[in-house]
């Protein structure tokens, strides 16, 4: 039970995987979508797990005293006294990862908004949304205390994550099943 409690915090990251629905309709080869999707889910799970295991194995009970444990763990690396100060590597990966993440979310926001407003083309939304992202990047929260308050007030802790990461996907799955069953029944009737 404590381990499940602990995994809840990780789930908020994992739920961001839900962004994949925005890309599924645009795949050229839809059969491969399932396979690649499963592979990436597995990869994300393993990465999250490995990071945690590494950090806990290195720091043990002191883990919670670090703001960014993996970063501190990387700083702690010292192999044969000369292979040390590797945090730049982690930083580079981190920033590259964040860049990709922003790109993906940016695309999802622009595309979703365009479809919502029934726009013929999403391109006209790119610049204004980018501007908004820029403004919010500076204004939304300044430090970690404000950030945690933001997540409490705006996202209501876990409710948002559960909504976007669990309830909506489940709902979509349910709808798909119902629709499939309907078409199946209609087909069956047609065959009569």
């Amino acid at each position: 039970m404590p381990s499940i409690k602990g995994s809840v915090a990780l789930y908020t990251w994992f739920a961001q995987f839900g962004i994949i629905y925005f890309f599924l309709p645009y795949l050229t080869n839809r059969e491969k979508g399932m396979k690649s999707g499963s592979i990436s889910v597995l990869a994300v799970t393993i990465t999250l797990m490995l990071t945690n295991i590494i950090v806990i194995l290195v720091f043990g009970r002191v883990t919670e005293n670090f703001t960014a444990p993996l970063m501190s763990a990387t700083r702690y690396i010292s192999i044969a006294e000369f292979l040390s100060h590797l945090e730049a590597l982690v930083m580079a990966i981190w920033i590259a990862g964040t860049f990709i993440k922003i790109c993906v979310f940016y695309y999802a926001i622009v595309l979703g908004t365009a479809q919502w407003f029934n726009l013929s083309n999403y391109r006209s939304l790119v610049l204004p949304t980018g501007f908004l992202i820029g403004v919010f990047a500076m204004q939304a929260f300044l430090n970690s205390a404000e950030a945690s308050e933001h997540f409490q007030e705006v996202s209501h802790g876990l409710t948002d994550t559960l909504l976007y990461g669990l309830i909506i996907p489940m709902f979509l799955l349910l709808i798909t099943y119902i629709r499939k069953m309907k078409t199946f029944k209609q087909k069956g009737r047609g065959g009569k």
Binding site: F59, G60, R61, V62, N65, Y76
Partner: peptide, 10 residues
Amino acid sequence: LFDLMEMLKG
């Protein structure tokens, strides 16, 4: 320093 952190947390 890390050992000390661990001991203080123990």
